[in-house]
């Protein structure tokens, strides 16, 4: 299956394009505490669908914490308490009636270090669809594995060795395998927590190219320490500092003419 974005869609003229992209994730006054530590303070932000939003900020600023609120990964941290409202498509994701496992099937995540299962390449990708019962037959599962690997631009490199271990791939290939594993269950949102920080520039470029393609079908949120990467891959950028969401804006504005002095100082390397 060719996953290249439809050129007709890409070439929509500004007049035809919708003036506002629908919001996929909406956060309202989100506060996060780790025990007594107030890690995230009154964060409110709307994240548009089918685009890449980058979270930037110095270490410990709360950007990863916020990312982990979106698929409730923070639930697994005993001392962590989340207050406020986070909605996906207008539905509260902290609603007690909502199953976090189902939520995480809709909100996939890719981590800093590639973490393939110690299983075959095939099984890494097939794992999610199997446990979520997304396929009725072996042929259908094969189809999901192939299309996921294709979407992750890995198919050509691994199609002849699907039974080899996923851990035997190079770092960049492993990361693309993890992305294939994530998209195999057809999530709506993909969270990426510094997905390229362990990769060389070529593997990084492959992931960035992949993000560019995926954003036409998925909502992508990426945490990155590389300003240049945020500038390259995202349409919107949010700057966090000391647990506060300082500024959100279009990426072109943030990197050429930010409004807040703290944003400017951070992205120009004036404080760490």
């Amino acid at each position: 299956m060719d996953m290249r974005p439809d050129p007709l869609i890409m070439m929509t003229t500004p007049a035809q394009a919708p003036t506002t992209t629908p919001t996929k994730v909406a956060a309202n006054n989100v506060n996060v505490y780790y025990g007594a530590k107030h890690a995230l303070k009154d964060v409110s932000v709307d994240i548009p669908e089918k685009s890449v939003t980058a979270f930037i900020g110095p270490s410990g600023c709360g950007k990863s914490t916020f990312l982990r609120c979106i698929n409730r990964m923070n639930d697994t941290v005993a001392s962590c308490r989340v207050e406020g409202l986070i909605q996906i498509d207008g539905k509260d994701i902290y609603d007690p009636a909502l199953d976090p496992v189902q939520l995480r099937a809709r909100v996939g995540m890719v981590f800093q270090k590639p973490n393939p299962f110690p299983k075959s390449i095939y099984d890494n990708v097939a794992y999610g669809p199997r446990i979520h019962g997304l396929s009725r037959s072996k042929a259908e599962l094969d189809q999901i594995v192939e299309s996921s690997l294709r979407k992750a631009s890995l198919w050509e490199e691994v199609k002849d060795r699907l039974n080899d271990s996923g851990t035997g791939l190079s770092g960049g290939q492993q990361q693309r395998l993890c992305i294939a594993r994530t998209i195999a269950i057809n999530p709506e949102i993909i969270l990426m927590d510094e997905p390229c920080s362990a990769l060389d520039p070529i593997a990084t470029a492959r992931i960035e190219e992949l993000m560019e393609e995926l954003r036409h079908n998925f909502t992508i949120i990426i945490v990155t320490h590389s300003m240049q990467q945020a500038a390259r891959v995202s349409q919107r950028t949010a700057f966090f500092h000391l647990g506060i969401l300082v500024e959100t804006g279009s990426t072109s504005d943030i990197f050429t003419n930010p409004t807040d002095k703290r944003t400017q100082d951070y992205i120009t390397g004036r404080f760490g």
Partner: peptide, 9 residues
């Protein structure tokens, strides 16, 4: 340096 923001300007 890949200057940004006011430095880029």
């Amino acid at each position: 340096r890949q200057p940004l923001a006011n430095d880029l300007r």
